[in-house]
Nucleic acid binder design. Sequence first.
DNA 1: TCTGGGGTCCTAGGACCC
DNA 2: TCTGGGGTCCTAGGACCC
Length: 434
Amino acid sequence: MKFGVWFCILSVPFNMSKLFALLDCNNFFVSCERVFNPSLRHKPVVVLSNNDGCVIARSNEAKALGVPMGAPFFKCKELLQRHRVAVYSANFPLYGDLSGRVMQTASEFTPELEIYSIDEAFLHLDNMPEPYEYVKSARETIRRHTGMPVSIGVAATKTLAKAANHIAKKHSTDGIFCLQDQETIDRWLRETPVEGIWGIGYNKGDFLKRQGVLTALQLKEMPDAWIKQNLSIGSLKTVWELRGIPCLESQDNAIDKRAITTSRTFAKEVTSLEELSEPIAAYIANASEKLRSQQSVCGYVQVYLTTNRFKRERYYANAAGIDLTPPTAYTPDLIAIAQKLVKSIYKPGYGYKKAGVVLSNLQPQSTVQDFLFEPTYDSSRRQKLMDIMDHWNNRRNTAKVFLAAEGMGQDWYNEAYKSKRFTTRWDELLEINI
DNA sequence: TCTGGGGTCCTAGGACCC
DNA sequence: TCTGGGGTCCTAGGACCC
């Protein structure tokens, strides 16, 4: 482990000055809705999670009204109505498309762009002489090309760039902050509670506070051995990053996912095995489409079920999985296996509230060896059938091809406040009346 | 009545072997 | 049959992130 940390230092040549910019879209989902509906600007807006369950994005005006992040919709509905807050159901096709446009524009400003999440990316700006002017121009270009407001923080490590971004959002007038001179860094560290650091969550923050480590500055000054013994090697990296030593490796964006999950909460409780079969089939179809889009096959499939986790009485949750030999990405086989798995964990007499599937042990389709007795995914007509289905389903504005097992898309979920898919469906284009 | 979804990484502990 | 220590590998679950 020690070697790993030393390697972090040695891998940075001394004459090379590392510099990172963290670009973060402001209130991303809300901003997406505003791009296509400018009348929402300067008004309180929230976006709800799937099934209209929780608040997952808030405009600054909604934050000012005291709408908490993650608040269950039913608990704050009255507050939202009272203040005439605009409410939207999550529209992930729209957000994913806008995210792609923002990242594309950002990538024109750096040879190395690390996409960290749907609304965040690190730009590598090593040895950049005038980072402020540079990211300012990036920010303006993104705004002009996509309509998306972003904040940018610049610093010598990713953890500090994250902090700089936070300062840019809260305190700067132009959405940009460079956290570079040591005096400013230490002043910020002194004023920041330890749980405000990227990588220190609720549990570690709570532990640190009980140990008397209250601020980011105190954390930075704790001995390495203590951090390693009481927290983890990951936390030690965080501490070194606070000291200005880059320890977080680049995430190669080309690396494929290690697992693919699809799950949903149902609008109502589902009781019969037959009713559970359809959403499970639909989740497998969804997950295996993602699997094929990264040219992978999966070697393990898992299915899980759970009743309402907020109800103490009659709670039941279970999962079952199975190794796949040979690994596959063939939807019909995966559905058949998933149906057997769900049957093995289903218990009658319970009202199920959520179900999901996980595809894991992913490997590139090209490396799968031939099996003597079993046809592999790519050695038969199966792959061709999937290719045709994917091709058809990826065309914009065509009816989706799906398997009968997925059902006709009953009203499993709530989404009462959904905006149109302005950028991915011809029949939902924005209409302008002149 | 109504409480999200999709990831990654690390660690503790069990199984197994010598 | 009982005794011990040390190592690897795997997996479930915790912690964290957006």
